[in-house]
Simulated scan of single mutants.
Amino acid sequence: MFHSLIDFVREHYRTDDFVPLHAPVFSGNEKAYVVDTIESTFVSSVGAYVDRFENEIAAYTGSPKAVATVNGTAALHVALRLVGVAPGDYVITQPLTFVATCNSISYCGATPIFVDVDRHTLGLSPKALSQWLESFAYLDEEGRCRRCEDDGIIRACLPMHTFGHPVDLDGLVKVCGEWGIAIVEDAAESLGSTYKGRHTGTLGTLGTLSFNGNKVITTGGGGMILAGERMAQRAKHLTTTAKRAHSYEYVHDELGYNYRLPNINAALGCAQLERLEAYLSEKRQLAADYQACLSGSDLTFVVEPEGCRSNYWLNAVICGDSKQRDELIKVTNDNGVMTRPIWQLMNRLPMYQQAPSGELENAVWLEERVVNLPSGVRPA
């Protein structure tokens, strides 16, 4: 079976060379737009392409506003600050995620609380969240959610749309609404994914995107905060070193960050965005072809949740156990086809081992079984 999968991947990518997991493709106006920024000399964080990229992402996602940042982690950091996360607070998140999700919490001086995921979404489980809150949290007289053990405020919930598959947002919105908890969607992996017709990152209080080199479209490095008008204005202020507008004076009125996306990166993003729909169409076709290829095998292909449209950023299979997972990874990589396991659970990492957590049965089960397959768009 493994060799049939290798043959399928090689036939799809039309190569006998090494097949990476998700390489970027530059097949449009990338070079022209980047050269344009160089000739204009506006290559830093002020320039027409930054404004254009923000406006086009806002229009594409249906978000009132979008604020570009230097990377997705910076977007998460500022988004958490915007909803009031402060030192000593708690933020509920999932253990099955990329480390940037948790690092952004730590940058705020807050502590993550790990709650289990659902197997069918790979993302934070509303049921597990509700059960944890009922057992370990309470609402104070002012309606703030607090952890029973130390009365610390649980300020936010940070779900991540794993591999582009939307989490159960209706369930999370309901639970968090009952407990007065803000939702920041980590939509880093899900540009082009929708939940019941709405783009991921637009159903919570705030959302964030990533344009790292391995994402569906890339700016080399880059991120975006999806927000309403008021929060977007504040996001732009914080990401521009909290500098107040003035023709020549340097006036900074609070702690800010040098987090704005450079114009030269935004130029790359504008060109990539022109190809997004074609990339999504190809990626969804690849997912369908993988599913057909694996039909009848003992590998379970991960499909989009019901009512959702996934970008299938990274295709994934669920193996029978960790032994089969390890064998699949070894055979494919030994034959020049890159596959990899899902992330190690965050609560196992040394800096997060002491963080509170609930029962993580599903997260552990998935950690032992999930393997990512090559998922990039074919070069032109």
Rank of each mutant, 00 (worst) to 15 (best):
V43E: 11
V9W: 02
G269V: 03
N347L: 03
T101R: 15
F114A: 04
A242P: 09
P159L: 10
N265F: 15
A227I: 04
V67P: 10
Y107E: 12
L124Y: 01
Y90Q: 07
R234D: 02
S106V: 15
F8R: 06
L328V: 11
E359F: 02
D298F: 09
R348Q: 15
R309Y: 11
L5Q: 04
M224N: 10
N212V: 08
A188I: 00
R348S: 06
G152H: 13
R348A: 14
D321H: 05
F8M: 08
R325Q: 14
R144V: 00
W179F: 09
F136Q: 14
E306R: 09
D16R: 07
I38D: 01
V251N: 07
N347Q: 08
G213I: 02
T41E: 14
T240P: 01
G143L: 05
T69D: 03
G143H: 04
W343G: 04
G222W: 04
A287V: 04
R284L: 10
Q233I: 00
I342W: 07
M231Q: 11
G28T: 06
V251G: 04
T97K: 15
E56G: 10
L206I: 07
E249A: 15
T93I: 07
F26I: 01
H199P: 08
F98W: 10
A156L: 05
G123Q: 03
V25M: 11
A267Q: 03
T41H: 01
F8W: 12
E149G: 02
E274W: 06
W343N: 13
S375I: 12
V83K: 01
S193C: 09
L238F: 02
R198V: 08
L299H: 09
A288F: 15
I264E: 01
A245I: 04
L273Q: 13
Y33N: 08
A110R: 12
Q344K: 14
V70Q: 00
P87I: 12
K65F: 12
T121V: 13
G336F: 02
R230E: 13
I342A: 15
R234M: 12
I217M: 10
D140Q: 07
L294F: 02
L294H: 01
E277D: 15
P95R: 06
G207M: 03
V251K: 00
L255R: 02
I264W: 00
N347A: 01
V167T: 07
G220P: 03
A288G: 00
Y259I: 01
T121F: 11
R325K: 14
A188Q: 08
M224F: 05
A266S: 12
F53R: 09
S310H: 06
D326V: 11
E306C: 05
T194C: 07
A68M: 13
S125G: 06
H252Y: 00
A68Y: 10
F2S: 04
S45W: 02
G220M: 04
T241L: 15
P379F: 00
H77P: 02
N214T: 13
G256A: 06
F2E: 09
A59M: 04
L366A: 13
L122G: 09
